[in-house]
Design a protein around this nucleic acid. Sequence first.
RNA 1: GUGAGUGUAGCUCAGUUGGUUAGAGUCCCGGAUUGUGAUUCCGGUGGUCGUGGGUUCGAUUCCCAUCACUCACCCCA
Length: 423
Amino acid sequence: MSKHYQAIRGMNDILPDTIEIWQYVEKRAKETLDLYGYQELRFPIVEKTELFSRSIGEVTDIVEKEMYTFDDRNGDSLTLRPEGTAGCVRAGIQNGLLHNQVHRFWYSGPMFRHERPQKGRYRQFHQIGVEAFGLAGPDIDAELILLSSRFWKALSIHHKLSLEINTIGSSEERTLYKKALMEYLQTRKNELDEDSIRRLDTNPLRILDSKSEAVQKVVAGAPRFDDYLGDESRVHFRGVLSILDTAGVKYSINPRLVRGLDYYSRTVFEWTTDELGAQGTVCAGGRYDMLVQQLGGKAAPAIGMAIGMERLVALCDDRAARQTAMAPQVYVVSIGPEAEQTGLKIAELLREKCVRVVNHCGGGSMKQQMKQADRRGAEYALILAQEEMGKDVVTVKMLRQKSEQQQVKIDQIVDFISAIYSR
RNA sequence: GUGAGUGUAGCUCAGUUGGUUAGAGUCCCGGAUUGUGAUUCCGGUGGUCGUGGGUUCGAUUCCCAUCACUCACCCCA
C-alpha cells in the first residue's frame, strides 16, 4: 500500500463515475456561453513566472507562496498557471486581438495553487473563465452576471446560490482609501488580532472582512470607502445595479467584498453557497481595466469571472447528470470463434447506424458475458452461440424490462435494432 | 504555513479494557441453474490492522515519530 504511487497531494483523479457530472456541467456551460456569443480560447498551462507575479500582484498570497514555479532548461522561470486571466490577456495581446476590439472569450482547464487542501479547495483545480474585452460600460458587467445566473438555472442550482456585489473604485480611489484606512487602523493597532496586524502591510482592505468580533468593532469606526468613490465609479456601479434590477436578478451589496487579486477595479462580485462549508464561493469576478495596458497591450477595459468546477460539480444533483449518461444500447454476447466474428461484424454495422454497442471481449461463459451486459447498463443483449449459428439467427434479449426474448435472422438484425433507435 | 480528527480486505465499516485462527456488508470468482444478467441461497479468493521505532512475556490495541486523508484557520474558484 505505502509502496504504491500516490497522486500528488491535492490533485485528484476524476473517475468515470463522477465524470458524468463534469460532462453535464461542461455541456450546459458551453450551451449558455454560446447563447451569449462567447468564443472559446485555449492557451498554455505554463507561462513565464513574471506574467503572473506582475498581473496578480507581488504581495498576494498566490504569488508569495502558492505558485508552482520551476526553472526551464534554459534558466527561464516558469509557473503553472494559478489562474486564467493573465494567460488569456497575454494570448489576446500577443495575437493582436485586444487592439481597439471587442471580444468575448471563455476557456476552461486546470489551475494550480500550492495551498493546504480542504473541501472545495485543491492544488489542481478546474475553472471555467469568462472574459470580455474592449467594453467599458456597466452593461457588460451586468451581462456577465446575467450569463452566470442563466447558467445556474440551466443546472437547476439557482436556488442554492446568492449574489454579492460591490465596487472597489478605480485604483487611484482605492489607493487614497487604503492610505486613510491604514492611518486609522494604525491608531488602533493594539486592538487588532495577529492576522489583521499582518494584513496592515499586505492587504488592509481584507481587515474589513475579518471574522473577529473585536476587529469588527474597530472596523465599525473606520473611514468608509463610499466617501472616496468618485462620480464615475459611482455612476458605473449604479448602472450595473439598475440593469440587474430590470433583469430581476437578486443581489446584496456587500461593502466588505474585496477581491484578492491586485488587478481588479470597480465592479466585483461573487456567487456563494452555504452548502460547501468554508469554501462557498462558486464563481467570482470583477472588472480589470488596467491589466491589458499593464501587460504591454494598448489600454483596453475588461471584465472577467471564474467559475470553480469542483465546487460547482459538488453542488449539482448527480441524478440530473445521470440522465445524460451514455450507457450502451446494445451488448454483444458471443460464444465460439464463428459467433465472435459474426458478432463483431454486426457490432460494426450497428455503429454505422449510430447505435452504441459494446462488444464483449475476452470470451468467457454466457453467464459471465450476460453479467457484464447488465453491469454496463446495456438495454439489449444480442446473443450469438452455437444454436444461433446453426439457425442463422441472433437472440435479442431486453435487459431493462421483462419481455420474451426473440430470435431475429442475422441479415435482418441491423435493421431490427436500428429501427428501435431511429427517431 | 497553523490546528483538530481519522488511517483495519479493492470499496464502506465493525472489533480488540493488550492475549494465541482479525469480522461483516459489498465487490470479484465458483456452484445451485452443463445457453441467460439484475433477485435468492451456498461456498471460495482477498489483510504485513498506514509506515517506522518504543514499552511489554506478548502490540492491530498503549506511547513517540512519520506519512496520507478529512475538516477548519489563512487564502481563494
